[in-house]
Simulated assay, not measured.
Amino acid sequence: MTLTQQIIQEIDLLPPTELEVVYQEVAKRMSHISRATKILAKYKGKGRGIWSMDAQEYVRQLRQSTRG
């Protein structure tokens, strides 16, 4: 049984008042995640053009130079 299945089984045993507390906590965490995702999405691609090469290429070259 997965952890998620175990949690769901435990939730099924909760009285409505405690279930509401769990719901509020999950909703709060999902809101934080959603907010963080939206904030980060605004910055996606903003660094384009700053570097003279692709970031992956830069890392590859950096790794080669430290190994050689």
Rank of each mutant, 00 (worst) to 15 (best):
33 I>W: 15
64 Q>A: 14
50 I>M: 03
46 K>H: 06
1 M>L: 05
51 W>R: 03
49 G>K: 01
9 Q>E: 13
8 I>R: 04
35 R>Y: 15
57 E>A: 11
21 V>P: 00
45 G>Y: 00
45 G>N: 07
45 G>R: 01
10 E>N: 05
17 T>D: 15
19 L>Y: 10
36 A>M: 12
8 I>G: 04
46 K>E: 02
22 V>K: 04
27 A>Q: 14
68 G>R: 04
55 A>E: 08
38 K>P: 00
6 Q>R: 10
64 Q>D: 15
28 K>E: 15
63 R>Q: 14
51 W>S: 13
19 L>S: 10
39 I>T: 07
19 L>R: 10
5 Q>V: 03
61 Q>E: 14
7 I>N: 05
56 Q>L: 10
12 D>H: 02
11 I>S: 04
15 P>D: 15
40 L>W: 01
52 S>F: 08
48 R>M: 09
24 Q>I: 05
46 K>Y: 01
11 I>G: 02
55 A>K: 07
46 K>M: 06
36 A>D: 08
60 R>N: 15
64 Q>C: 04
10 E>W: 03
36 A>P: 00
59 V>W: 04
26 V>H: 05
68 G>P: 00
51 W>Y: 12
53 M>Y: 06
37 T>I: 07
32 H>E: 14
31 S>D: 15
5 Q>E: 15
54 D>L: 03
50 I>E: 03
61 Q>T: 02
43 Y>W: 08
7 I>K: 05
16 P>Y: 02
10 E>M: 04
46 K>L: 08
35 R>M: 12
21 V>F: 08
5 Q>R: 06
68 G>N: 10
41 A>S: 14
27 A>E: 13
37 T>G: 06
59 V>T: 11
